[in-house]
Design a protein around this nucleic acid. Structure first.
Lengths: 148, 148
DNA sequence: TGATATTGGTTGCATTTGTAACTATCAATC
DNA sequence: GATTGATAGTTACAAATGCAACCAATATCA
């Protein structure tokens, strides 16, 4: 009979991942919250638009695995504060193409710089091999975890 | 002048970690929610008590970096459903020692087994070196991310 | 002894989130 | 061209969360 008390919580991957995710996001979160009053979903939307160009809300949902209500509210908030605009497009009026305003782009540029800084600080502790493995494993988990 | 659009979101560690954490937790979350009506903080409390023996709420907060209000509510919910009991202790009546009931222990045993199963499935994709690096890196992030 | 600060834990309130139901547009089928 | 079914996005309501204020017990120190 195996003793369940042998189970090592500190080795349990979902637990480690959740704690690491939280710890790693804290400082950056503080930054975009203080500076732009954004929350996580909002900066993610901004990053997607800034990085990949104009997208529909749906596309952001799919790419980032975020629920549509969350994106909907984030977009509404960002629009209210003039970070982005919507252009319904002719072909299919259900879609709305989202694009960053000048203000949105400026925020994106600044946030990217800051993100890069945080990432460098975080990853600076690891060597190239470790970074590669880390990223590869995480991507694998992201891609398989969903439907499994 | 660097183009911010070069920034690779898919390489940004906090983003990867958050997505991996979410993806890796989904199935297990579904399990303990369906089976015991627990939520994340609740099973974490159960795991801590099951694994490390009786603890005070404060100790759980510290060990798991969870805010005290969250733990307080989780404990209340677990007590209501008879998964644990509280013993205020003589020396300092501010503290309350928490311990799992028989029912709580049974749930813990079952959840541990299930957790182990999920973890095996998740980590099965990686070799020993990768697992080691992954765990080591995550622990490093957890330990340094907090105050940095 | 009494005033003040600290600590473990809870509660109230505002904000966020998840779920489901909804609107509006388009596609498919008859 | 009317009916049914998807699909993009919003909204309403309940549950979860974060923050600050709170209570009670203890520690500190005049």
């Amino acid at each position: 009979m195996t003793e369940k008390t042998d189970f090592d919580l500190q080795q349990f991957m979902p637990y480690l991942l959740n704690r690491a995710a939280e710890a790693s996001s804290l400082d950056f979160q503080r930054y975009y919250k203080a500076r732009y009053g954004m929350q996580r979903t909002e900066w993610r939307v901004v990053f997607h638009l800034g990085r990949y160009g104009d997208l529909t809300a749906k596309e952001i949902c799919t790419r980032a695995s975020i629920h549509k209500t969350k994106v909907s509210r984030a977009v509404a908030a960002l629009e209210r504060r003039r970070f982005l605009t919507r252009h319904p497009y002719q072909d299919d009026r259900r879609h709305e193409l989202l694009s960053l305003t000048r203000v949105g782009k400026a925020a994106f540029d600044d946030l990217v710089e800051e993100a890069q800084r945080f990432d460098d600080a975080l990853m600076g502790a690891f060597n190239v091999t470790e970074r590669d493995i880390l990223r590869r494993c995480l991507r694998h988990i992201i891609n398989t975890g969903q439907g499994g």
